[in-house]
Design a protein around this nucleic acid. Structure first.
Lengths: 199, 199
DNA sequence: GCCGTTCTGGAACGTGTGTTCAAAATAATT
DNA sequence: AATTATTTTGAACACACGTTCCAGAACGGC
């Protein structure tokens, strides 16, 4: 029996990936609640009905955007952490990349951090994503710190896990500071100060 | 001519101060947008109309609550900073007090930090309050660090202003971490790690 | 040219919002 | 008891929201 599985009739006009990236940017700037559906369709350049057809409702679109944002962030961080260089050089690169991202444009901070504040107390899925994201980020940092210990780049009496958490807390603070009252230069000197914890 | 200036027909039933404190707590937990007016009247134990009569609309109530929160926070911090003790002891007390406040209850973080993320990009008044608050906090910390330099508690080559900003960034990060994924013990060890920047 | 899909836009639904008006109930002072 | 201001309550307003239905146009593959 031959079944025609897929007939293309009319292909989707827009690039789902590009649209998702625009959604990330929009939610990062405006938050979830503040971004009305009309605003979304305008910013994404996609018709109302098409959005519902491809992504589902507003919640689903947001979760898709957040997932995209997280995957990109994790990949970028892993890339930096695995590149050659001393521990200190590497961490500087991590901080500078994050600060650049959080300050870019008008300084809207980090979508994950913003979403934590806005939604995690009333949305279990967001809370779960936040916890998982924290575990991932801190895991990557702790792994790099542990490697540095083996390479003699970090004293053996340091606690990689505690340091990783500490650096993560710093990154979250930078995100909020960037959104509210700080420019990238100040954040960069803060980042360099924080490296004193490695000595 | 005798004019009767003030007649106390029926005094206000509720204590405005206590109500404002409850408003602070409510907004800290739920945010501004998410807290509906019905929720507010219920949480504050004050009738809808009475609220409008005494505080004005929702925005005005929120700003009053935020002002109250800021004043209390600044006063608490100044109190700790002016108490006797070494620089390190004092900063530990500052961090621990902030962490305790941010984690208390179910860990709703700091009203000022939460408001920065939620509103500062679309509300100039909130942004101004955030900038002013940052300047106050960092000013107090920088003053204490400068004093420590005079007392030989901090090396003269350190930059008190940069350190103050750094500690403030940490505090903001702790607030968000407390709200989203962290408990107070982890934050306390992060705070102790951050003191390495003083050496 | 037909078919099936996607796009577009208008209309409507239901709901929740902050806010206001007005009248009735209440409590303390004179 | 009369007065005066506050509280309470119900009703209504105007508006914005997310969402759905629907009809017509646009389009690609057969």
């Amino acid at each position: 029996m031959i079944v025609q599985i897929y007939v293309v009739a009319r292909p989707k006009e827009f690039d789902q990936d590009a649209v998702l990236n625009r959604a990330v940017e929009l939610f990062r700037q405006r938050g979830f609640r503040s971004a009305s559906f009309g605003e979304i369709t305008e910013a994404l350049g996609v018709g109302r009905q098409s959005l519902y057809d491809t992504f589902g409702d507003k919640d689903a679109l947001f979760h898709a955007a957040l997932k995209r944002y997280r995957e990109r962030g994790i990949a970028d961080m892993r890339h930096i952490l695995e590149a050659p260089g001393t521990l200190r050089e590497t961490l500087i690169r991590v901080f500078d990349a994050a600060i650049r991202a959080h300050c870019e444009g008008e300084g809207y901070g980090c979508l994950m951090a913003n979403s934590m504040v806005e939604m995690c107390k009333e949305d279990a899925a967001i809370r779960a994503a936040a916890v998982e994201h924290a575990r991932e980020v801190e895991g990557m940092l702790a792994a790099r710190l542990g490697r540095a210990q083996l390479e003699g780049d970090l004293a053996p009496d340091k606690d990689p896990v505690a340091l990783a958490r500490y650096f993560h807390h710093m990154l979250v603070g930078f995100s909020v500071a960037a959104r509210a009252f700080e420019n990238s230069d100040v954040l960069r000197t803060s980042a360099r100060l924080s490296l004193r914890t490695l000595d």
